[in-house]
Write a protein that binds this DNA or RNA. Structure first.
Lengths: 376, 376
DNA sequence: CTGAAAGCGCTAACAG
DNA sequence: CTGTTAGCGCTTTCAG
């Protein structure tokens, strides 16, 4: 129910193409209404050509800034474009244009609402924008089926390139797309079953850095809290932790490694359990943002926030304003996004190299929590 | 420079359409290489039809789930689709289809990397996804020229609808687009010079809530720190503050209202100055996220974090883990995004009503900082 | 139920 | 320098 073209209360019965069928519920009059009046039909290049009194190809030349059009012609065409509020259809153009470029990129991230993905998103937008590419962004939520659906959705839209993190166990289904020349760049996690450009953080290096930092501060009983083992980054960070402990000659006992933590609540419970033990850890290395959040709540609730050392993988807003400030291993999401787009551009420019894996450095930002010394 | 098809070091000279011209710098051989081998040409509906031994229209029917195709035919077609890894081109389809729907939405937010925009983005993605619409997202950075450019970019892509916040002083340039039937929905800030659906937060109500909360706690010398006055939300929140103060019978002196604060550094300096005064405020109401951040740093640096009351407009991650927890006026970005898409869908369905402004409630979340009592 | 022909808005190729 | 023609991959229309 709503108002259509002067009929105060009309009930929508059906729509068909450009038309809608409605009934005026005071006069019982049947209404067939065009959704857009023909007078306001979206103008085409032909309309512009007719108004300017030139051939359609001349309009095309002006729109695409091609040379060899005389200035007065250009003027007349631009006048017509302005007065009709004409915007050329990119889709129609790229359909005919050789290469069929759509000037669009597909970006699959974990979740556009999380700060890491948001920063990647922004960097991709900025880099892609320099060549006038627009970006389709979608969230994966670590859901394999979603990955397949969204990729398929993007391919139907003929994106010029695909920048994606993964959720499915294999990306071999993209083999044909790669052969067709679509630049494929994986971020955050490497693909399985296909060889393609990959941009990842230095997960092992960052984890080693964190662990060594805690050992240096005098800690021996350090606990590692990690995400589900199916996730590449979770495995790598755990690997870095174990490697650093081994290299320091410290044996790691079973209770010191807890993984499979997929949200803050799990992390919270894990820390509470850890602190209840006779031999509780003097330091915690959290493998991920959301885990860090759960850890912080647990430490605060137990009143040991100022005495238990903590380093979190992944920086987060407000980390420096907590008390103590939270020491983190910072990734470089903007760098990851920027480099990913560079690789896409290289592919688009026909510069084919064998698949390159770029490892983006991680850095330790000391803010206090990682510098606390053991209490005993 | 890179490696092309077995030539270890080749220098790219030029590209033309599907071909690239390169020179092998060891053999000086000139190379003309097809970017995509014809054998791997992207299959079209025609290819599928040929392989399945049916007419192209039958393939179209199967792809679009149209009825009146016999099951064995459907099978044969689907077999061919699978073996060719065929994905129909949405752009080609919508070019011919009546209505010319592209199944894409354009979303303009402040900055995809900021949490508010990220949440809006996510809600829009989810709601749009239910009808298989993909979303182009771009960041405005409060830049009027960017707004014009991005909107134009989106219109060239013939998005089915536009959800946008604003940066330009007027949106009257969208008049013709609206007449053509493109659903236009404004979020966070109302448009100027055009009448269209608008979804905004209850800025005044939230500001009144915050101010009354501080007054109730016993504060009289309350300072309001706001963003630049050109911004709608900044004006509204200031209006709410002044309104609540007046209603409580409190006179507001000049130093109590500081606006034009566009980043954390400005906010930091403003608070330092405020605290240096003889009569410094006992409570602060911060008009925005980034300002709150600057305020927090200043309060901490001056050691008055636990004695100066603070309420911030807009919730932020970790607010509850600070000491004291930060009391905020929370907006509902997911709600804003969801409702915006609903309005777009209504427009798309031909349900035309006069422009509706939806005000999404804001809520006070008490966490400690806003409940501190004045010290004197 | 199925297919052939026309054409969506634009650009490539070529002719003037 | 400018215009005409054909056709990108698909859906519409209409005839079998």
């Amino acid at each position: 129910m709503g108002s259509f073209r002067g009929h105060q209360r009309a009930i929508l019965l059906a729509t068909h193409g450009q038309f809608l069928l409605a009934i005026d519920n005071s006069s019982w009059e049947i209404l067939i209404i065009m959704k857009t009046p023909m007078s306001e039909r979206r103008p085409t290049m032909r309309d512009v050509a007719a108004l300017a009194g030139v051939g359609i190809k001349t309009v095309s030349r002006v729109v695409n800034n091609e040379p060899y059009v005389t200035p007065p012609m250009v003027d007349r065409v631009q006048q017509a474009i302005k007065s009709l509020h004409y915007e050329p259809s990119l889709a129609a153009g790229s359909l005919r244009r050789s290469g069929h470029r759509t000037q669009a990129l597909g970006l699959l991230v974990g979740d556009v609402a999380n700060p890491f993905s948001g920063s990647v998103n922004r960097a991709v937008e900025d880099a892609a924008g320099q060549r006038n590419l627009a970006v389709f962004t979608s969230s994966l939520d670590d859901d394999a089926e979603r990955e397949r659906m969204i990729v398929s959705e993007f391919l139907r839209r003929r994106v010029d390139g695909l920048i994606m993190t993964t959720a499915a166990p294999s990306q071999s289904y993209l083999h044909h797309e790669k052969e067709r020349g679509t630049p494929l760049v994986f971020i955050d996690r490497p693909p399985n079953g296909i060889d393609a450009d990959t941009i990842i953080s230095d997960n092992v290096g960052g984890a080693v850095l964190a662990t060594e930092h805690l050992i240096m501060a005098g800690h021996r009983r350090i606990a590692f809290l990690g995400d589900r083992q199916e996730i590449f980054t979770a495995r790598e960070r755990q690997r870095g932790f174990l490697q650093a402990m081994r290299q320091a000659g410290l044996t790691v006992q079973g209770w010191q490694v807890i993984n499979g933590l997929s949200d803050a609540t799990h992390a919270y419970r894990a820390v509470r359990m850890l602190l209840d033990k006779d031999e509780s850890p003097t330091a915690i290395f959290s493998g991920q943002n959301i885990i860090t959040y759960g850890v912080l709540r647990a430490l605060r609730d137990c009143g040991v926030q100022a005495t238990t050392a903590l380093i979190g993988f992944d920086d987060f807003p407000m980390a420096e304003l907590l008390d103590p400030g939270i020491t983190v291993i910072a990734q470089n999401p903007r760098g990851i996004g920027r480099i990913a787009v560079e690789r896409v551009f290289a592919g688009l420019d026909g510069i084919w190299t064998r698949a390159i894996t770029t490892v983006v450095p991680t850095t330790l930002i000391a803010r206090g929590s990682g510098e606390l010394r053991p209490q005993d």
